[in-house]
Simulated assay, not measured.
Amino acid sequence: MPSLAQMTGSLHIHNFYIGKLKAKQERLFDSDPELAMLLDNVAAVLSEHAVVLADDIAEVEYKE
């Protein structure tokens, strides 16, 4: 299992890219709605994984 620092770093990276994807999606919404929808789907998958990571982090912190 990864360390707490690795999981926390991974969560920050996920959140960074989720923000980037959502910002790009908003800019592309009018010019390329299909690409905007794809970016939204990718952001949703990353968001789901970020929730799992946050839960894992909370569990590790609780055990400590």
Rank of each mutant, 00 (worst) to 15 (best):
V60Q: 08
M1P: 15
G9H: 02
L11R: 10
Q6E: 11
K20E: 08
D55T: 13
A5V: 08
T8D: 05
V51S: 11
Q25H: 08
P2F: 07
M7D: 08
E26L: 12
E48L: 07
A44F: 06
L53D: 00
V45P: 12
N15H: 02
L28Y: 09
S47H: 07
H12G: 01
M1E: 13
A50R: 01
V51A: 11
D32G: 04
K22P: 05
L11E: 08
V60P: 04
L4V: 10
D30W: 11
D56V: 09
Y62R: 10
V45K: 15
D56N: 14
L38K: 15
K24D: 01
A43N: 01
R27K: 10
A5S: 11
K24L: 10
A23N: 05
I13W: 02
I57F: 02
V52P: 09
F16S: 10
V60E: 04
H49A: 04
I18Y: 01
H12E: 12
N41H: 15
Y17L: 06
A5M: 05
I18F: 04
S31Q: 13
N15G: 00
Q25I: 01
L11I: 03
T8N: 03
L39C: 06
A43C: 03
Y62N: 09
Q6W: 00
S31E: 14
V42L: 14
A5W: 01
E61H: 05
L21M: 11
K63G: 04
L28Q: 05
S31K: 14
V60R: 10
A54C: 00
D40T: 14
G9Y: 00
A43V: 00
H49Q: 09
L11Q: 07
T8I: 08
Y17Q: 12
R27P: 03
K24H: 03
D55M: 12
K22H: 11
D32K: 13
M37D: 15
G19I: 03
T8G: 02
N41K: 15
V60D: 02
E64S: 10
S47T: 09
Y17I: 09
G9M: 01
F29R: 14
L46S: 07
I18Q: 05
A54G: 00
V42F: 13
A5D: 10
V60I: 14
A44E: 13
G19F: 00
A50P: 00
A36D: 07
G19N: 08
M1G: 15
D30K: 14
L28F: 09
A23K: 06
L53R: 02
V45G: 14
Y17T: 04
V60T: 09
S3V: 01
A54M: 05
F16H: 11
